[in-house]
Design a protein around this nucleic acid. Structure first.
Lengths: 236, 236
DNA sequence: ATAAGTGATTTGTGATCACAGTTTCTGGCG
DNA sequence: CGCCAGAAACTGTGATCACAAATCACTTAT
């Protein structure tokens, strides 16, 4: 069996709730698997192949793939082949810089709307992250971390940056996951504690600094991976 | 005839080149019409209605609408009705701030890659903008202006911010157009000349300042529109 | 006359089919 | 043994149909 066989995929399934349209279910499922790095860069994805794996008709898969392509999570080649884009060092740096730009801005915009209840929710989320870090549960570290950031930014009811930020996460996801999975142990200074403290004090500059530090820690952590350069561009 | 009739649409058609897929043609057509403000906020769009107007099957229209929804150009309501989102003052300010953030960043990243040839192309584009301004040709002012900015940012081959920026343009487009069309005469200090001068001198800070000034001028120009607040939120 | 109820129409979604372009496999030639 | 042509399989795209949900319009009861 060729390694590029579109059907050679171990997908993390999620249950399909009834109020979810089929194409939304397929989209979220593929999205999760991309963020988890379960679908590696360079992997060709086909509509019919995925439809067979997921036991749905090709139509909802078509829509989900188009949406993911629109968000930059997958790339439609000229040959109309759909693949997970490979990462380059320059692209990685650029995406990281954009994350810092947009997320510090989003945090700043959210600060005035943060209520005590939000802080409590964020504390609970951070606790879940800590637990995941203890267990070295890379999947949940990513998922809970994103949930933490999303809840913070979405406190601003006039938020429009979050979709852009999620697009960045989607593009960084597959690569980050592969890199992080090479780490023996994920160790991070808990910048979320600093962010929470800044939220309580309504300290705008402190919040921006905590968010930026949080993102930069993640980047630095990835860059400590031994032989990280092998994972840029030319992944077989 | 009800004003909300989906078929009551005067769409600006574009010729369909042969190497363009039908759904891409529909997408670009709708995109242009949205940017031109020809489809006003609040207008309901239906798949079958558009398919009949454009004389294509519902399928490519479905894909085009989904893509536009993904980019924030149209909004899919809970009732699965698709409408052009209305603008609020807060959303407008937020989108404008994000434009400044992302575009100054993109300009900075592009500067090292700008060649003499690029500067000449940009000069020609700026001349076309000037001509459009003279003739008060709002359609082309927008189009050429976007082309100018896009060419500048895309000089960086590792560019990843442009899709995000284009999403912002799409969300601002319909509203800006309606606002600008109320102006008797578009008058702007030509910040592009300043940007070009900064490019020649490889002046990073000057370039950022020119881009920011260019965007802020546009915002200020829109805000001079008499009764601008009538066009926020509750457009009939 | 107004408002609630009910049937008819329209909507988006998903499935299936036909088709053109691409890739891949295969068989025959140099 | 290597290489290239041709066929077979596969891919994405677009069209059409069936269906459930939502909307609209008309009727009816108060």
């Amino acid at each position: 069996m060729k390694s590029s066989d579109p059907k050679d995929l171990k997908l993390l399934k999620i249950e399909k709730s009834d109020d979810l349209k089929t194409h939304q279910w397929v989209y979220q499922l593929l999205r999760n698997n991309l963020l988890c790095g379960r679908i590696e860069p360079g992997k060709p994805l086909t509509i019919r192949g995925l439809a067979e794996i997921l036991q749905v008709s090709p139509m909802p898969v078509r829509e989900a793939l188009h949406r993911l392509a629109c968000e930059g999570a997958v790339e439609v080649k000229n040959n109309r082949r759909v693949i997970v884009p490979s990462m380059t060092a320059e692209k990685f740096n650029e995406l990281s810089e954009l994350r810092i730009l947009l997320e510090t801005h989003a945090a700043e915009g959210a600060l005035p709307y943060i209520k005590q209840q939000d802080i409590e929710i964020l504390e609970q989320m951070d606790a879940k992250i800590d637990t995941a870090v203890e267990h070295n549960d890379v999947d949940n570290i990513s998922l809970y971390n994103q949930a933490f950031h999303r809840h913070l930014y979405c406190a601003n009811p006039f938020q429009v940056a979050v979709p852009l930020i999620e697009s960045l996460w989607l593009q960084l996801g597959p690569f980050s996951r592969i890199a992080i999975s090479k780490l023996e142990k994920v160790y991070l200074v808990d910048r979320h504690v600093e962010a929470l403290e800044a939220l309580r004090q309504r300290n705008l500059f402190g919040l921006r600094r905590a968010i930026e530090a949080d993102i930069r820690d993640g980047i630095a952590s990835i860059k400590t991976v031994d032989g990280i350069h092998d994972y840029f561009e030319g992944v077989a």
